[in-house]
Amino acid sequence: MTTTGPARLEAADDPVSPGPTSEIAIVVDGSEIRGLAGQTIAGVLLAAGRQSWRTTARQGRPRGVFCGIGVCFDCLVTVNGLRDVRACQRHAADGDEVSTDA
């Protein structure tokens, strides 16, 4: 486990006491990333330590989540072939194929 960047709090350490849930797996640019049922795609990516997954058109700069509530469109990904899906709004489904342009 890295010691920098975003991370999901393990249920055992969590004062909120999240209930048990099933694991899911999504495929991001060909690599499998595991997450929990009910997470958004952005949540799965951040919990895996990914901070950015898109590159801007003009300056080629990396982008990930900025507003987290569906307003800024920085976190766009392609899901199962459908472009321009906000990763912070779309709930991840087991087996989703996600591609980024990063």
Binding site: T3, T4, G5, P6, A7, R8, L9, A11, D14, V16, P18, Q39, T40, A42, G43, L46, A47, Q51, S52, T56, R61, P62, R63, G64, V65, F66, C67, G68, I69, C88
Partner: peptide, 26 residues
């Protein structure tokens, strides 16, 4: 402010509440 790792305060709140994800360690 466009660097990854710069978030709105609301993003940190949303990710904490609905994902139990902290946007960073420090």
């Amino acid at each position: 402010w466009d660097l990854p790792g710069v978030f709105t305060a609301g993003a940190a709140q949303a990710l904490a509440k609905s994902e139990r994800v902290a946007v960073g360690r420090r």
